[in-house]
């Protein structure tokens, strides 16, 4: 179990974070095999983001999952929960053994996270487009209660098609919720194809900026860049809500899945499973454009 730290911005090495991102990917393989299906590629794109947020940035305390002053994290792209569950177990929110029954009848752990069943999950998700509205509400609560926690919301890029995202973006700008941080996992693909062909989301930065947001754009697989973006965030208070667009690659870490439309949901078995495992163990390799 990795030692938890309740302060924000703890000092861990980039190598350690890379190792934890690898752990996220390996666990996604393992858990998908238990379920017989899993959202591999949407989780792989967010692996570095999960690692940086949970092991180096968020102000959380696994011993007190409902600590009122904790930072909130909303996984609005709830289908990547398979990558979050092992992280929460690793940090000590619950026993890793519980994941052995992942998605089996009666398990607390489904494909999408349930805040009522899983310590450390701040809000249930699964229906895309809701998370940023949840974040607006949480940030308003923080303001009413005069608490300085920040609210982080990870969205998928295809999720930006949902109209409610823009209702929330508008409200966050209107209420000047500087403590609300949206992170878009810009992994380029939705289920039917490239987002720009199915329903274009760009220019994401300009769109959010016009709603009153402060925008950063980074390589979401570059841990140094991710950490710099997180560390540069402003504290909760009155000001522009903050967006980090993380340019990522759907399926990153297993070549056959990278930017492939065939792996949004899948199941690796036998030698394919072992091949993917070994590839992930070798760490992220430079991409050769096809």
């Amino acid at each position: 179990m990795t030692r938890p730290d309740t302060s924000r911005g703890h000092n861990v090495s980039l190598d350690f974070l890379a190792d934890r991102a690898r752990f996220v990917r390996l666990e996604t393989l393992r858990l998908s095999r238990i379920a017989g299906a899993g959202h591999y590629s949407s989780t792989f794109s967010a692996a570095e983001l999960f690692a940086a947020l949970y092991y180096a940035h968020l102000r959380i305390n696994p011993a007190e999952p409902r600590w009122p002053d904790r930072d909130r994290f909303i996984l609005s792209k709830g289908h990547a929960a398979i990558g979050l569950y092992p992280v929460l177990a690793d940090l000590g929110f619950y026993d890793m053994k519980l994941l052995e029954n992942y998605t089996r009848l009666g398990s607390p752990f489904g494909d999408h996270p349930d805040m009522k069943k899983i310590p450390g999950v701040d809000f249930s998700s699964g229906s895309l487009g809701h998370g940023l509205s949840v974040g607006v509400g949480m940030a308003l609560s923080g303001r009413v209660e005069k608490r300085d926690f920040r609210v982080y919301c990870m969205l998928g890029d295809g999720e930006l098609n949902e109209g409610q995202v823009w209702e929330a973006a508008m409200a966050a700008g209107h209420f000047k919720l500087q403590g609300l941080v949206a992170i878009v996992d810009r992994n380029q693909l939705c289920i039917d194809g490239n987002t720009e062909q199915v329903m274009s989301v760009e220019p994401i930065g300009d769109r959010f900026a016009s709603f009153g947001w402060a925008v950063q754009r980074i390589d979401g697989h570059d841990l140094e860049a991710v950490m710099a973006a997180l560390e540069g965030l402003k504290p909760a208070g009155e000001g522009k809500p903050q967006l980090i667009i993380a340019d990522t690659i759907k399926g990153r870490g297993v070549k056959r899945m990278e930017l492939s439309l065939n792996w949004h949901v899948g199941n690796l078995v036998g030698e394919d499973y072992d091949d993917a495992w070994n590839e992930i163990m070798a760490g992220l390799q430079p991409r050769v454009e096809a």
Binding site: R72, S133, V134, V136, G137, L140, S141, V144, E167
Partner: peptide
């Protein structure tokens, strides 16, 4: 919808 979901976010706090 944003109002109702944000209300849920507040209720969670």
């Amino acid at each position: 919808r944003n109002m109702i979901t944000a209300a849920a976010g507040m209720a969670s706090c």
